[in-house]
Design a binder for these strands. Structure first.
Length: 109
DNA sequence: CCCATGACTGAAG
DNA sequence: TCTTCAGCCATGG
């Protein structure tokens, strides 16, 4: 894992996100040892569009805002996918975000 | 090698 | 609370 490319490492973590849970770009970056590279994680998600095994919709910004929803096909596809997992969303923002947050730094230690 | 681009963040005003 | 700004660093031209 540590010898794989940056994207693959991001994908490996993203695939561990449990159903009905979400995490942030920054948390994944921190887990990978690059706490200042949240943008790279977002970029990796964009590149994961072809890879259906990566649950990119479960990765949101620090505040629970669906900043990447515009990169999904449907206008509200990202939101619908999350709501389908039991997550409540209002104004592009996850409600009660902290209760859905899954921190890879803690769970994958 | 230099420059632009970004699904981010945290600090500052 | 909201808006701006500046680091951040992998990729591609």
């Amino acid at each position: 894992m540590s010898n794989e490319g940056f994207f693959e490492r991001v994908y490996t973590v993203a695939r561990q996100i449990p159903y009905g849970k979400v995490t942030t770009y920054g948390a994944i970056a921190k887990y990978l040892g690059l706490p200042k590279s949240a943008r790279m994680v977002g970029w990796a998600m964009n590149a994961s569009k072809n890879d259906s095994t990566v649950p990119a919709h479960r990765v949101v910004s620090k505040n629970g805002l669906l900043t990447g929803k515009n990169h999904f096909d449907g206008t509200n596809l990202m939101q619908q996918l999350l709501e389908n997992e039991g997550i409540i969303i209002q104004d592009n923002k996850i409600q009660n975000f902290s209760s859905f947050f899954w921190n890879p730094v803690i769970f994958l230690q």
